[in-house]
Design a protein around this nucleic acid. Structure first.
Lengths: 204, 204
DNA sequence: GTCTATATCAAGATAGAC
DNA sequence: GTCTATCTTGATATAGAC
């Protein structure tokens, strides 16, 4: 009912936990390290989170909510029409949004931490993805096109996580252009089917 | 010079380590667990791998080599011509190759294990990716198209790792079709530029 | 080359003072 | 609600017998 000071405190602890994993990697999260980073004792930390798992769980919930918020805002920022969601993902992922880039970096390491601690803790992310899949499915594109774009974005996350690719700005722009082309194809496919209604019914 | 029995033994230990992480997750790898799975004592295990990190390192080297081998064979299996590499990735990732699906499952968990233990251990994967980027860059596609396909494949790995998406066979086929379409676009883009040679020289 | 036994240590969690 | 002190566990790695 009145979580004023308590919320502030919890947020401070979650910030500290994020800082720890961001600086030291997923495996470096210990109650000692988080407590030290937050400037409290282990006892004080454990008063708010009865276990390390609860702490990680809260981290996941918060970061996923933040990311979901960014996604929704990115969609709102796009003009209505077919491919709106797909275009939002492209804009979000390829344009220079330092805040969002930060969110991605934090998200990846937090999610990794959760995954290794206990795969069930990743559930909030899965829930948002289910939501996104519905949005993509209703994005007005030919089936598979929006999903492919989303998958390519996931692939960028993958490469951030494992450090597999260092995309130059030039190459990044080329990738974005090709994905934008794919969205156009997806739009055209649907419009084409709408214009020429002679297609053999239950194709999809 | 003569690694006959020694190699067999090492392979047995690496198999055991893989089994452990495959069954219990990345965090479950302990010297005790691996030794038990291999049917040796901890001392016996540590005789071959002086530290846990060395064990993980060897796991990574082996699984990455195996995966690279699969990739190269998939490329060989494709007809020559523009988009060969991109098509190989699509074939590998979407067709029913139980062996390869297994390789992917093992790879992901092994790489996760390495990443959390020490990010430097993932280096063999990064090396192969650099190799792949060269192959993709010379695949005869318009810039960005092959890279986008590779990124989408990475995205499938991402979703396997985090369990974010359950792709139905139908949707999977649709995604593949759209990516195949993207490859065609990439081929057409280059052929278009080749036919009309009025382009400004040093584009690539 | 493989084993047992053990040293060492770090980390999660608890108890109870303030 | 925050602290200090402590318990307990489990894991890495070593030492030395066989």
């Amino acid at each position: 009912m009145k979580p004023a000071r308590s919320t502030i405190c919890v947020d401070k602890l979650l910030d500290a936990a994020q800082t720890v994993v961001l600086q030291g990697g997923a495996a470096s999260i210990t109650l000692d390290a988080v407590a030290a980073e937050a400037g409290v004792s282990k006892g004080g930390l454990l008063h708010h989170f009865p276990s390390k798992e609860k702490l990680i769980e809260a981290m996941v919930v918060r970061i996923v909510a933040e990311w979901r918020q960014d996604v929704m805002e990115a969609i709102e920022a796009q003009p209505h029409g077919p491919g709106r969601v797909a275009r939002a993902f492209l804009a979000m992922s390829f344009e220079d949004h330092p805040d969002f880039a930060d969110c991605v970096r934090r998200s990846t390491v937090v999610l990794l931490t959760a995954l290794t601690a206990n795969p069930k803790l990743v559930q909030p992310l899965r829930d948002v993805y289910r939501e996104l899949e519905t949005l993509i499915a209703n994005d007005g594109l030919k089936p598979g096109y929006g999903e492919a774009v989303l998958s390519a974005i996931d692939g960028l996350w993958f490469s951030k996580i494992f450090g597999t690719r260092d995309v130059s700005a030039e190459r990044s722009a080329a990738i974005r252009a090709s994905l934008a082309r794919l969205v156009e194809e997806g739009v055209a496919g649907v419009e084409g089917r709408m214009e020429s209604k002679q297609t053999k019914g239950a194709g999809a």
